[in-house]
Design a binder for these strands. Structure first.
Lengths: 355, 355
DNA sequence: CTGAAAGCGCTAACAG
DNA sequence: CTGTTAGCGCTTTCAG
């Protein structure tokens, strides 16, 4: 019903100047008399003018818009990182457009998809897609738009990467459990193809080895990062004749599932079983008991990623191509010393039908 | 280092045809000989061509991209609705670009901001911003881009609205508690300026009245939708000489906070106190005990919103201007009959210094 | 300090 | 079935 597609031509006419003057006045580029500028701005105001981004893009000017490509907008660890990147972008005076096609763990967007949607309007693209295909990455590499990968774990790409550590943090967590006297420490993995999970698992195994503990395959259970799988995995663990005294989950949501299963089984945290997660999502510090977990410095990661991307967008190919930030163990209340009787198999509260 | 900015001119040259033929062949519009089409597509393939969205937008063609404006990308109820809208968009063959400026509850983006970023490339805009200013809405109304409001509660706009019910659902929840024999039912509100919270509160009060229960101001505590405020509010509630036997929180996250506070206080859910939330975020069904809550049909809402927006984008101003979906009470394990002794003030486990 | 012309990549509208 | 022309809104030359 209403229209407000004022262009600079309308403004030019209203202000009695040329379009070029309008452009200059509005963008603050080049010389414009103060009086003229005021006149132009007044006209723009009245017309409710807002510039047409597409037209700007079309002739190659910067848009101050960054694209953010994410694989799963619903995972809590993901929203945390999106938030961090959003803050970083804002601080850098950039707007952020988030794009995702696969909410349900379906197919990832292909490079052509991305370029089609984001290519025309963004100065650069940040990708938080741990499981991107090599094909997509290769395509992006060949594209003309600068790309920075966030929390990408493999080394098979020439694209710059900013990431948080998975290995050391997870190793620290398990070492801490060992130091607390735990000898039967279980690991609930994420999706088997997730590189993040694999690194966390490697940290687990190396910490075990460093503490002189043998790796017990029966203590390694596969999950898929969802809370429900953490619950199921833990149930299975607790049904074993020799249950673990500590559980390390590849992410916080599974750790919550583990805590629920433990409570449902009538055991206490951390008196009977300690639980550690990974990510430090907001609810980790609100859980009951508060969850011990590993935290990546998301704000630092976001800031570095945005900065690096902007640098590339400005044509500077010099900067670092790989930046890694250390993660840190956040000790809370879900971990404690191993129970004294831990070495004696106790299935007092286990379900019947145990064989 | 690499370039892949192939345009239809490059393709035209390579295939030995005109740009118009390329355009037609690639878009499937108009008649093109099968042989020609094949030739063109092969050339496009080789060149790694991807169309320039901005150029398309610039001459008014549809982009098949929808913009989604959200106020807080980190709230769990929000990510659920974003997911629902994403699925709906995908099903409708549209891509979705999510835009948010204020992660931290800071200023909302203004209409000019939105138009600047999204205006140039989207066919239409969905807004999930319960607290949008009237100014912004007025600006959007005057704009040329179709806009659909999602879960907007006020009636002060001419823009079409698709929303889930807050009042009836909340009323049903509280009625259910009353039916279970609860007579002291507390309400933890969301941010005082949130319309959603106000509607939920109205449902609470009307249900109380309908059940013949007097409204007790001391049982109404203000939160702000964050888990921590649910915790704090509940602590305060439990410190009272006459504690409530049921707590209804304006959203699930605060309900979780309430559950934590109750457990920390040594009380059982639902034997001592029942808890009800609102939203049915994914973790609600995984909590321990599983949370009774009110669910909005997010998928239906998303689908209706996308459909309505597309309709408007196609120039059809006929459709509904206001669609509301009923919400439903999801009974789980956090609610139960009121404890028998509920009428006797029991502060056995309350903290000292009670006066 | 200001203006005119050209063109970014693409697609409607009209010829062939 | 295919090609030509023009123009979307803006900015970058190059001239005043």
């Amino acid at each position: 019903m209403a229209e407000s597609n004022a262009t600079i031509y309308d403004i030019a006419q209203k202000a009695g100047v040329s379009v070029m003057t309008v452009s200059r006045a509005l963008n603050g580029t080049g010389y414009v008399a103060e009086k003229t500028r005021a006149k132009v701005q007044a006209a723009a105001q009245e017309l409710g003018y807002s510039p047409n981004l597409s037209a700007k893009v079309l002739n190659g000017s910067r848009t101050k818009v960054l694209g953010l490509l994410v694989s799963d907008i619903q995972a809590q660890a993901m929203t945390a990182i999106i938030g961090a990147i959003g803050r970083a972008a804002k601080e850098a005076g950039q707007d952020l457009l988030v794009y995702t096609t696969a909410q349900v763990g379906g197919e990832q967007p292909t490079a052509p998809d991305v370029m089609r949607v984001l290519g025309g309007i963004c100065d650069g693209i940040l990708m938080v897609m741990p499981g991107t295909s090599e094909q997509t990455l290769a395509d992006m590499e060949r594209g003309s738009l600068p790309v920075v990968l966030v929390n990408y774990w493999r080394t098979d790409t020439a694209l710059p990467v900013v990431r948080g550590d998975n290995y050391q943090g997870s190793r620290a967590a398990v070492s801490q459990l060992a130091a607390l006297g735990h000898r039967r420490i279980a690991f609930i993995s994420g999706s088997p193809h997730s590189g993040q999970s694999q690194e966390r698992q490697r940290g687990y195994r190396d910490a075990l080895a460093a503490a002189g503990l043998a790796f017990d395959p029966s203590l390694l259970i596969e999950g898929d990062f969802a809370q429900s799988t953490g619950f199921a995995a833990t149930r299975a663990l607790l049904a074993r004749p020799q249950r673990p005294t500590a559980i390390f989950a590849a992410n916080d949501e599974m750790a919550f599932g583990a805590m629920d299963a433990i409570k449902a089984h009538g055991l206490r945290i951390p008196e009977d079983i300690s639980v550690v997660g990974f990510d430090d999502i907001p609810s980790a510090s609100h859980a009951h008991p508060r969850l011990t977990t590993v935290r990546q410095p998301l704000d630092a990661i976001g800031e570095a990623a945005v900065k690096l991307l902007l640098q590339r967008a400005a044509g500077d190919r010099q900067g670092a191509s790989r930046i890694e930030f250390p993660s840190s163990l956040v000790l809370r209340d879900s971990t404690g010393p191993a129970p004294a009787a831990a070495d004696h198999p106790t299935s007092a509260l286990a379900e019947p039908g145990q064989g």
